[in-house]
Design a protein around this nucleic acid. Structure first.
Lengths: 119, 119
DNA sequence: CTATTTAATGAATATATGTTCATTAATTCA
DNA sequence: TGAATTAATGAACATATATTCATTAAATAG
């Protein structure tokens, strides 16, 4: 526990409140994992394309210009994080978005980026 | 360019529209970088504390239980991405949030995580 | 001026992560 | 059944990243 705040004389009660308000380690880890998923250009492109339409692995492979294996691996991590879902038809796997936050997240991120351009 | 969509017979016009709609590489890279910043537990904790109050490096170091150097390095990346700002007073650097999207982003991420628990 | 404090920086290291290659699994078709 | 297609998986490798340690820079106090 922090003995005292050296910088500013924050009231001890408030400091305790702040420290207690820190989300649990498991929650923080989950947040990290969630954001990490978005921190890769291949996955971002996949998410973009799936936000437009359902696609199979081969098509996504063409669209993002990556090997089938690379796309499969990335789809796996997207699936594990419940951002995309998969339905099978014969030997073909059709992927689509499984989260309504993706668009929202993108929007905010773009806002941040655009503000940077203005500054 | 994708010759044709093998999975579904998506109209060629729509497919072209989708492909053209893919953000430019520079934008995608910026999005990646933005999300990567959130994909680290130390940085998340720092952002949490700064969302509560302004703090100096030494205090943040205590709060997140990391060495001063580690915190300084992370503050640098947060600064470079314009998520925090710094003001100096003597030898002390006071950091605070420099982005109104942080809270919003956290909120959405938490929603996603909580939905996972329910499912 | 010298010693002290606070933060920033650079190099080194250990770990994590994305891609490729090779293989396997599952399904369909002849 | 056997060949072909589509996707998933595992191992290996190369790259990126976070932390530590050591040092430097800047400001203040004695």
């Amino acid at each position: 526990m922090l003995a005292k705040c050296k910088c500013k004389n924050i009231p001890k009660a408030k400091l305790t409140e702040i420290i207690d308000g820190l989300p649990e380690e498991t929650i923080i880890d989950q947040l990290c994992e969630f954001f990490k998923v978005f921190g890769d250009s291949t996955r971002l492109k996949i998410l973009y394309f799936l936000s437009c339409n359902e696609f199979c692995v081969a098509d996504l492979s063409n669209l993002v210009r990556m090997q089938q294996s690379a796309v499969s691996h990335q789809l796996q991590t997207l699936r594990l994080h419940r951002l995309v879902k998969c339905r099978k038809e014969g030997t073909t796997s059709y992927y689509s978005l499984d989260d309504n936050h993706v668009q929202e997240i993108f929007g905010i991120a773009l806002e941040h980026i655009n503000e940077g351009l203005v500054k």
